[in-house]
Write a protein that binds this DNA or RNA. Sequence first.
DNA 1: ACTGTAATGTTATATTGTAACATAATGCAG
DNA 2: CTGCATTATGTTACAATATAACATTACAGT
Lengths: 165, 165
Amino acid sequence: MTHNNPPFPSADHDHKNCVSHALKNAEAYCQQQGLRLTKLRHQVLELIWANHQPVGAYELLDQLTHEGRKAAPPTVYRALDFLMENGLVHRISSRNAYVGCSNAGHEHTAQFLICESCGQVAELDNAQIGSVIAKGANQLGFTVAQWTLEISGTCDQCKHRSQDE
Amino acid sequence: MTHNNPPFPSADHDHKNCVSHALKNAEAYCQQQGLRLTKLRHQVLELIWANHQPVGAYELLDQLTHEGRKAAPPTVYRALDFLMENGLVHRISSRNAYVGCSNAGHEHTAQFLICESCGQVAELDNAQIGSVIAKGANQLGFTVAQWTLEISGTCDQCKHRSQDE
DNA sequence: ACTGTAATGTTATATTGTAACATAATGCAG
DNA sequence: CTGCATTATGTTACAATATAACATTACAGT
Ligand SMILES: [Zn+2]
Ligand SMILES: [Zn+2]
Ligand SMILES: [Zn+2]
Ligand SMILES: [Zn+2]
């Protein structure tokens, strides 16, 4: 069986599939919510997914330019703002980079596993982590609005790969 | 009884006390570890504590300059690097800002409560959060090297303050 | 087609962080 | 104490990330 929210994708997976799946999801979600997933926004989202690891704004800008679009920093940042506001993209603030959301549509605060070796990121949605955090904060009278958890380390595949050497 | 690791300091606390306490701690720690807490590093650490909320590198640079020291960006960043490497200061990456560590000396990965209203930050060291995170990651075969948790919201005092209006 | 709104283009600039090399301070061996 | 190696700081220039402000274009609804 396939995992419902696969952690790190295997090296040999069909990545075009990931991208098109994410895009279809996003299209449906925006349709349903009356959001305007314009050509630019669609293009940026596609690039983000195509990179399939956290990608910087200026890197996206380059890629947009190579695809023939006239773009300047605000072009990218505005698209990113839209995508983030609507939960289609997350920002990894420890890296100044952006990544597609694996659980778009259902309200969540994400947690990220960031592999220092291969650069890939897995998005968790571990309810237990969320509830422990909420509990810890509430004990101090703190009302949580949002939070980000960014975990660096080594993913399973990279661990095995390094053992083979 | 007072909490061993007080969350948000009360508005009327004697803050000079906080600062001098933190500095004495840092001095003792560096002495003991054979680390060179030079005048510059001491000065930067003092400024960070004096602000008593996350403060940006360029803000520190201004403050240093106003204290009469010749300083440029690398001056500040190098001092920050030293202080972070040795666990005396943490970086709040969601804000590009730096804050004094409340638990300097004992190895830990910190968690931050950031009040959006007053700007203050409380450092937690909640072992339960740490263990849930480790567990969640290990289940996926991920080896955790480090992590940061930054929680935004409203602190207890600000909640009460807003009720009074 | 007309019109108000939202999106994008465009230019300039702000903010945050580093590279690279010169000088000065510090600690230590002799 | 003196010279030497190491570490820290000064200095200049620049890279990387992000936003402000205003002009133009596309779009949706009438
Ligand atoms: Zn994929
Ligand atoms: Zn990996
Ligand atoms: Zn204080
Ligand atoms: Zn507050």
